[in-house]
Design a binder for these strands. Structure first.
Lengths: 151, 151
DNA sequence: TATTATTTACCCACTTTTACCCACTTTTAA
DNA sequence: TTAAAAGTGGGTAAAAGTGGGTAAATAATA
């Protein structure tokens, strides 16, 4: 089981490649076969799943019903933006142009670890996002704690 | 079991042929015999099932009852538009004219992976469709998550 | 049924894109 | 201070995608 934490700044090159932090590369489980599935994330970022983690997610998607519109749309959101990409010899993966456009990435990117997957942000978007919910950390914690037992 | 993800832009040529993404061709199981069943999809796109996946779907259709009008109509929708097509040496399939007309495809097409099947779109239709439900990804996820345990 | 017309499938060739490899620069750590 | 590791950039061969000619198969017509 992979476990990613932390944040790292990189640049995306003219060929659409981005570096994966060395720390993360070391944390990927062998079952992932050095492969990521990159797709649209939530809150305007890109999600990158190691292949083994993606498979688990996909398994859940397959249990949904194509006959229900909500399910169909959800599956479409998750799969049609997805792209498989293997680490090259330098430890980089290729990001498809449509995802770069979707989350408005230019030259600078921010990669964050989020337990089972990575998030790829436009650094400005990330900053605004965190600023917007800055005050809510404590509030969220309490809210979640009411339902589940977190700490 | 095939698993298709991602989106790819192609053109349909004067002979009505479209390319199948190389990545998808590699993902087709041998049982499909390089053959697709192409039929009318939902939300204004065409669905293309590898033959083995179509067989599974067909099996489900057979369990419905011709004596019930709803079932009868549903079976008719799913089957009467269907057409079998084999990959040519270049990895292309032929799309029947009535389906091209149905979803208003012109020169440009967009092929997306949707786990067990492919979706073939007019790129404009896809864009409008995704824009319409753009804000809903997060909402859908929460909605689905309330019933099932998705993430 | 024979002949012609039309469609389909196969093959070849050209263009574009991708993946792989190598090399340089910068950062980290001893 | 130096060696190793990490990160960045770019050339090139191989793969993927596109277009079109021709033969085979099918359909249409006399």
């Amino acid at each position: 089981m992979s476990s990613f934490i932390g944040q790292f700044k990189y640049t995306i090159d003219t060929k659409g490649r981005i570096n994966i932090p060395a720390k993360f590369r070391k944390a990927i489980s062998p079952e992932a076969n050095e492969t990521f599935v990159i797709t649209r994330g939530m809150d305007d970022c890109i999600w990158a799943y190691p292949l083994d983690e993606w498979s688990k997610f996909e398994e859940k998607l397959r249990q949904l019903s194509t006959n229900q519109k909500d399910h169909r749309l959800y599956i479409r959101m998750a799969t049609s933006y997805a792209s498989e990409s293997r680490l090259d010899k330098q430890g980089r993966i290729a990001i498809p142009q449509y995802l770069i456009d979707l989350v408005k990435i230019e030259k600078e990117i921010l990669i964050t670890g989020s337990l089972d997957k990575l998030e790829i942000w436009n650094p400005n978007t990330y900053e605004e996002h965190m600023k917007e919910y800055e005050q809510s950390y404590e509030i969220l914690a309490e809210k979640i704690d009411k339902n589940r037992n977190l700490t």
